[in-house]
């Protein structure tokens, strides 16, 4: 029996004004996968994510849970997919608990306030990420790494299986980058499915089950990380040299300086 994809992107096209951003993208996301989207700036990674979340409208089709996206309301989509944006700045400084509770909105009726059960779910989500002790802190005063963890806890409180992350490690210090990757790895082992964009082929090698490379609005490679991330691909997409080495039985990507002057 063939496994059904959770998300099925079919022949997706998207243009901004006259500028073509995505042309003919096909992508399937299956349960339990960690898919990394690689590609240079402006290649259409973030656009693809926004199309899947119905934040933008393109032509072609996206099936979420076997139903076309045009028939899904945002509330429906929020009951399948959690979105963790690149950074979060709001002029209003909510507490961590308030931020996590916002993940429950799609579960609440129009007039309903968060119930004891919603608080329970939020508390458990914070415990799962290991930041329960921050629950009364102001979100704006947290470090970049802690903010990402709060958004992950919010996504867990959303009680969905699919997490879509836009460059989760952007702006984080080195330690927090690695800790966040470990956390994604742990959550994926618990059955969560991830689709994330990244600028780091090495990170893609570290935690992905599949890598998709987008360049010029088209998918140019889709497959197992060690097969997709090669010297040639790095040269082709980023115009730099890199070595793919094996360290502790893991493939790693190490960039090499070129003499330019």
């Amino acid at each position: 029996m063939e496994l059904k994809p959770l998300i099925d992107v079919k022949n997706l096209h998207f243009s901004y004004k006259t500028h073509k951003i995505l042309s003919g993208v096909d992508l399937k996301l299956y349960k339990g996968e960690v898919v990394s989207l690689l590609g240079p700036n402006g290649c259409g990674k973030s656009t693809l994510i926004k199309l899947i979340l119905k934040l933008l409208y393109g032509s072609g089709d996206i099936l979420i849970n076997d139903k076309t996206i045009t028939n899904h309301s945002h509330r429906d989509i929020a009951s399948y997919i959690a979105y963790i944006p690149q950074y979060n700045n709001t002029p209003f400084n909510y507490s961590v608990m308030e931020m996590v509770l916002m993940g429950r909105i799609s579960k609440l009726g129009f007039f309903a306030l968060a119930s004891a059960n919603d608080y329970e779910v939020a508390n458990k989500a914070l415990q799962k990420i290991g930041i329960w002790h921050l629950k009364d802190k102001a979100f704006g005063q947290l470090s970049g790494g802690q903010k990402q963890m709060v958004l992950l806890a919010r996504s867990i409180a959303q009680e969905v299986n699919i997490f879509i992350m836009d460059e989760p490690v952007a702006g984080l210090d080195y330690g927090n980058q690695i800790r966040l990757l470990e956390l994604i790895n742990e959550l994926s082992a618990q059955g969560y499915t991830f689709l994330k964009t990244t600028h780091y082929p090495d990170h893609a090698l570290l935690i992905s089950s599949r890598v998709v490379v987008i360049n010029g609005g088209k998918i140019i490679a889709d497959g197992a990380p060690h097969k997709v991330i090669t010297k040639e691909m790095i040269q082709d997409v980023y115009s730099i040299n890199a070595d793919i080495i094996t360290h502790d039985s893991h493939k790693r990507c190490v960039p090499i300086f070129q003499k330019t002057i």
Binding site: K50, L53, K54, L55, S73, H74, R75, D76, I77, A78, S79, I81, A82, Y83, P85, N88, T90, P91, F92, Y94, E98, M102, G103, I105, S106, L108, F111, L113, A114, Q158
Partner: peptide
């Protein structure tokens, strides 16, 4: 009565939509 939505709206449109707000 709408106050719980205002928290989400103040995160910006994209995030509010992704969390399921019309």
């Amino acid at each position: 009565f709408m106050s719980k939505y205002f928290d989400l709206m103040s995160l910006g449109d994209e995030e509010a939509k992704a969390l399921g707000v019309n």
